[in-house]
Each structure stands twice: as structure tokens, then as C-alpha cells.
Amino acid sequence: MVNIVLFGPPGAGKGTQSENIIKKYGLKHISTGDLFRKHLGEGTELGKKAQGFMDNGKLVPDEVVIGMVGETVKEFKSAPGFIFDGFPRTVAQAEALDALLTKYDTSISCMVMLEVPVEELKKRLLERGKTSERADDQNEEKINVRIQEYNNKTVPVAEFYAKQNKICKVNGVGSIDSIFGQIEKTIDKQYA
């Protein structure tokens, strides 16, 4: 089983590349945003817990997020592996994910970290903002906050995986195909 954590700042191309990874390797995509929408929409117990925190303007606690991830891993445990998109966001979540995967005799294979210079990110997001409905892609101030938030929160998670020799940095600038080619080489090493 190959389990990939896909990381990169807003505008790095995670969505595009995760689609390519899923298509080629058949991994189950786990995005916390999708999980929140699913659990809230279905009114599950975890969704109700998450809604209570969100209604009060609070972050959903790690144990609720991990619970949602855990249910998905259990449901799709026969998948060839998972691609975690935008998760874990904190070291505590990374530790909890490691513990969860251990229950299924598996672990994170590598953290694929898309690296893109800040000016390129801003350019991409502003361009995407012209066609997307996302207000946070249309305002440079909000873009700066999102990039800074990513930098502040991700560095410790990247260090966590670096200590396990599981961080794989990929240059996120270039054509979609050339970037995916780098990602393929990284993932193929996990199968070797």
C-alpha cells in the first residue's frame, strides 16, 4: 500500500496533480474539506460535532477530523493506498494519522511537497480568481494571508516527515506533465 501526503501552498497545483496521481495509481483521495462537506451534508454524528464547533467560530478539534479520516480509511482499507490532500495540517494530526494507519499495518510512504515561488503562486491564484467563484483567489491581501498561514503551519509538519526521511520535494513550476513526471518518479520509488 502506498500512502501519499500531498502538500503545497495555495496555487501550487495540488488539485491538478492529485487527479493525475489518482488516475495513474488508483489511490483513494482523502480531502478534509470533502470529508467535512460529506459529514455535514449527511448529518452524521461527527458532522454534528464539527458543526457545533464551526457554529461557534472555533476550529474543529483534531480528534473529530481524525475520526472522519479514520472512517474513510476503514471503509476503503482494500484500496491500493491513499492520497491525503491538505491533511495533516499540524504535527498532532500527523502523529494521529501515523497511529491510525498503524492499525491497518500501513504508514505514510512519502510527503510530496510541491514547491512554488511566492510570486508565481500569487500570479496563479489571481489568474484562477478570474474564472473561479472564490473571493480568496481574487484579493492579493487574502492570498498573502493564505500563503503565510500555509508557511507557518506546514513547516513543522514537513519537519515531522523529514525526520522520518519521508519528505519528497518537487519543483511545482513547469508544465503539468513535467511536474507530474517528477511526482511519478517519487511515487514509483515507493513501489520499488
Rank of each mutant, 00 (worst) to 15 (best):
N3D: 10
I4L: 03
I4G: 10
I4M: 04
I4R: 08
L6K: 09
L6V: 10
F7P: 00
P9V: 00
P9D: 00
G11V: 08
G11L: 07
A12W: 07
G13M: 02
G15H: 07
N20Q: 14
I22R: 11
I22N: 01
Y25N: 09
K28H: 11
I30C: 03
G33R: 13
D34S: 11
F36L: 15
F36E: 05
R37D: 06
E42P: 03
T44V: 02
E45R: 09
G47Y: 09
K48G: 05
A50Q: 05
Q51C: 00
F53W: 13
M54K: 10
M54Q: 13
G57I: 02
K58D: 13
P61Y: 14
D62R: 06
D62Y: 04
E63N: 14
V64C: 10
I66H: 07
I66F: 10
K74V: 05
E75R: 10
E75T: 11
K77T: 12
K77P: 00
K77F: 01
G81D: 12
I83M: 13
I83C: 08
D85M: 09
P88H: 04
R89M: 04
R89Y: 03
A92M: 01
Q93A: 05
A94L: 08
A96E: 14
D98E: 15
A99W: 02
T102K: 15
K103I: 00
D105N: 15
D105F: 14
T106L: 06
T106P: 05
S107V: 04
S109G: 15
C110S: 13
M111R: 01
V112Q: 06
V112L: 05
V112A: 10
L114F: 06
V116E: 06
V118N: 09
V118R: 04
E120L: 01
L121A: 07
K123D: 00
K123A: 09
R124V: 11
R124T: 11
K130M: 15
R134E: 11
A135K: 13
D137W: 02
K142E: 14
I143Y: 09
I143T: 07
N144E: 06
R146Y: 04
I147W: 02
Q148K: 15
E149I: 01
N151P: 00
K153Q: 12
V155C: 00
V157G: 02
E159R: 14
Y161F: 15
Q164G: 00
Q164R: 15
I167W: 01
K169V: 08
V170Q: 09
G172L: 05
V173D: 06
I176A: 09
S178K: 14
F180Q: 04
F180S: 12
E184Q: 12
K185F: 00
T186K: 14
